[in-house]
């Protein structure tokens, strides 16, 4: 006696004969919902080879052709639902936003360079970094096209601000511990690199430490050069603001705590504000220990 649970219903088989069955009407929505709702156990190959035949015998469908077209319609619907859920996850939104920030930065740089080149040509302003201010204070001195250009750049800067605050908001609710410890933007970047909060939570601290330094890491593995000390977590003020001698140690400590923070955020959502002060304390100790040598 074999009991098999398939997409079109539950079937009891005995000596290759169908002895009992509970099949669904050929209703795409109902069938798709059942696939989502219920658990299905695997069944043996002999039954699997007879799925079409059984479905026709039980009059779920009238032909093999219909079997394929009904199943296809159901699975297209399921696939669409799954894609929508995947994109509705908060970490998917965070990844989109942080990628957006990177795109904006790239555009701002590109356009600023073009604008400064352009102004050198007309030799009206000297330093590129003063350009936007110069435009703001005396817009009439510039050609209208250059003004448009500068306006676009400053609009992009505003957009960047707005995107950054959107990330901060999302991060505060989705990953509070990671936000406190690493900062919202760096935390978001880590999530994006890992491909989601779940993947970051499953990552070992050592990998978080060098995430974003993969070129250096593989150069190390392949050719035996020095291993990288930090990847994107270099952007953290505790790492960036410390003496190069102890940056590696700080990066290691910070990465370890980030791993814990990500796990807390993903599995429990409980706020645990001590994480940052613990890191700060260790960093403080390291800095005082390093002092005599550096002075």
């Amino acid at each position: 006696m074999a009991h098999i649970k398939t997409w079109f219903g539950d079937i009891e088989l005995h000596n290759d004969e169908i002895v009992g069955s509970q099949v669904l009407n050929a209703d795409i929505d109902a069938m798709a919902r059942r696939l989502q709702r219920e658990d299905f156990a695997d069944f043996d190959k002999e039954c699997r080879g007879r799925l079409r035949e059984i479905a026709i015998k039980l009059q779920v469908v009238s032909s093999e052709r219909e079997y394929v077209s009904l199943l296809r319609a159901i699975m297209i619907q399921r696939a669409k639902e799954r894609i929508v859920t995947a994109f509705a996850q908060p970490d998917a939104r965070i990844i989109q936003l942080i990628d957006g920030i990177d795109d904006i930065d790239e555009s701002i740089n590109l356009l600023s360079e073009r604008l400064s080149e352009w102004c050198l040509l007309t030799s009206e302003t000297s330093m590129p970094e003063d350009l936007l201010e110069a435009f703001a204070s005396s817009p009439s001195a510039q050609s209208p096209l250059a003004q448009e250009f500068a306006g676009s750049i400053s609009r992009l800067c505003e957009l960047r601000q707005e995107t950054a605050s959107a990330i901060e908001l999302e991060m505060r609710t989705t990953a509070p511990n990671l936000s406190t410890l690493a900062g919202e933007l760096l935390g978001a970047r880590l999530i994006a690199r890992a491909g989601g909060l779940g993947s970051l939570a499953r990552m070992p601290a050592s990998r978080i430490q060098v995430m974003g330094a993969s070129k250096a890491l593989f150069r190390h593995i392949k050719y035996g050069t020095k291993p990288p000390k930090h990847g994107v977590i270099f952007q953290h003020p505790l790492v960036r603001g410390s003496h190069p001698n102890i940056r590696g140690k700080i990066a290691r400590i910070l990465a370890a705590k980030i791993a814990i923070a990500a796990r807390l955020d993903f599995y429990s959502k409980r706020a645990y504000p001590e994480l940052l002060s613990q890191v700060e304390k260790r960093v403080g100790e390291l800095q005082t220990a390093a002092q005599p040598r550096t002075t």
Binding site: W7, L35, R72, M75
Partner: peptide, 26 residues
């Protein structure tokens, strides 16, 4: 693509943890 081609059935699943058991025939 599968909406346009009659003989493609799309399955959005992780091949490492197949959950398409009730759907795929031999």
């Amino acid at each position: 693509l599968s909406e346009r081609v009659e003989n493609i059935i799309p399955l959005i699943s992780d091949a490492a943890q197949p959950d398409y058991g009730p759907v795929v025939e031999l």
